[in-house]
Design a protein around this nucleic acid. Structure first.
Length: 363
DNA sequence: AAGCCAGACAACCGCGAAGCT
DNA sequence: TAGCTTCGCGGTTGTCTGGCT
């Protein structure tokens, strides 16, 4: 189909953005919103193509971007989602608040992929390279099950990512009349632009749901989820939940869930016909398979994964350096404070990714 | 001090999908 | 319905920086 000619025009500047250009772009979006990206450069007085402006805004200038090192939890989430989704960075980014797809992609390529490779794990399949022939212990049936699970989760995550994008449109129309202020501070922009921080779509967070299933079943006793389908129960009564449908607080924290205390974002979503449509789709496509999931009762397959789940926030690479001493240093918080943390951490990740509900009767 | 190299990250490019007329 | 425009995504490249020799 038609190709945008904007970047092919001669005379347009390429390469790194100058502070002056950033200022112009910020000032324009603050006042008028981005509107049509194609038309923006001319209106904003920039010698750039619209594509370049959009990228600069999305990946760098947007006020709701969290910069700096990825937390251990974020790394874990990226790896888990990558195991399910592959290189669908935008879908992965939808689960990492304030991170851009470009940033995640870069981080994966420069850090995580190499680490997995070093550990002898194929970063594409997330399987040990020595186990090339078979996943799930080499059992073809289990491998097929795992594949089905991955496909299923992939489809659902994609649907959710789409909803997240749509929610941006619903709750934050792109063209916002921003008032008379000419301030270009990030704080100011954060309240005004079309890309204000998104609410977490709590009950549609299928990654959370998936993990909540196994977490709830094996580790939390009385507050356990009754059944995996509970994650979608809100669909039945159309109620926007104020809590996380039976998941314990621990879990919520672990998954970077940021409850929206105001609920205002959800209220706007409630009115969305698109949301209603998606609800119906999810009801039809997701609830049924989940109902029959069963897992080994002893929870052994999930044990290591759960330990990784409980690692404390702020855990960083330096803490993960594995000395030759090899002492086990699991701390009282359930995290790893010992000498061989890196190996344990990554083993946990790998176990989580590999954790196939072998007893599943779903597929 | 200079040159080289590798890592990290910003930015570009090409493609496909969605929307509009 | 076809053709065009616009946007978003993912792969790739370019540039900067810090470490090493």
């Amino acid at each position: 189909m038609g190709r945008s000619p904007c970047c092919e025009k001669e005379g347009l500047k390429k390469g790194p953005w100058t502070p002056e250009e950033d200022q112009k772009l910020l000032a324009y979006i603050e006042e008028y919103g981005h509107g049509s990206w194609r038309a923006l450069p001319t209106k904003a007085g920039l010698q750039r193509c619209g594509k370049s402006c959009r990228l600069r805004w999305i990946n760098y200038l947007r006020p709701d971007i969290k910069r700096g090192n990825f937390t251990l939890r974020e790394e874990q989430t990226i790896i888990q989602l990558h195991a399910l989704l592959g290189n669908r960075w935008s879908a992965i980014a939808a689960h990492l608040p304030k991170r851009t797809d470009n940033e995640i992609k870069n981080y994966w390529n420069t850090h995580l992929k190499k680490r997995l490779t070093k550990m002898g794990i194929d970063p594409v399949t997330h399987k040990p390279k020595t186990d090339a022939l078979g996943s799930a212990g080499g059992n073809p049936k289990d491998a097929a099950n795992l594949s089905h699970i991955a496909q299923w989760e992939s489809a659902r995550l994609e649907a959710e990512a789409r909803l997240v994008r749509e929610s941006k449109l619903v709750s934050n129309p792109p063209q916002i009349q921003l008032g008379s202020s000419t301030s270009t501070s990030s704080a100011s922009l954060a309240n005004k632009t079309a890309t204000a921080p998104l609410p977490r779509l709590q009950c549609l967070d299928v990654l959370k749901a998936w993990q909540g299933v196994v977490t709830g079943l094996f580790t939390f006793g009385t507050d356990n989820l009754d059944s995996p389908t509970s994650t979608l129960n809100f669909l039945e009564n159309n109620a926007i939940p104020t809590s996380t449908v039976g998941f314990n607080d621990n879990f919520v924290g672990n998954m970077n869930i940021e409850p929206d205390t105001s609920g205002s974002e959800w209220k706007s979503l409630e009115k969305s016909s698109q949301l209603q449509e998606l609800k119906e789709k999810m009801e039809n496509s997701m609830v049924a398979p989940m109902q029959e999931v069963t897992y080994p009762e002893d929870g052994s397959w999930f044990h290591e994964s759960f330990r990784a789940e409980n690692m404390i926030e702020g855990y960083n690479d330096e803490m993960m350096v594995c000395d030759s001493g090899g002492q086990n240093g699991e701390n009282l918080n359930g995290g790893y404070g010992g000498d061989c943390d890196q190996e344990k951490y990554w083993n946990s990740i790998v176990n989580f990714v590999n954790a196939s509900p072998a007893g599943s009767t779903v597929f």
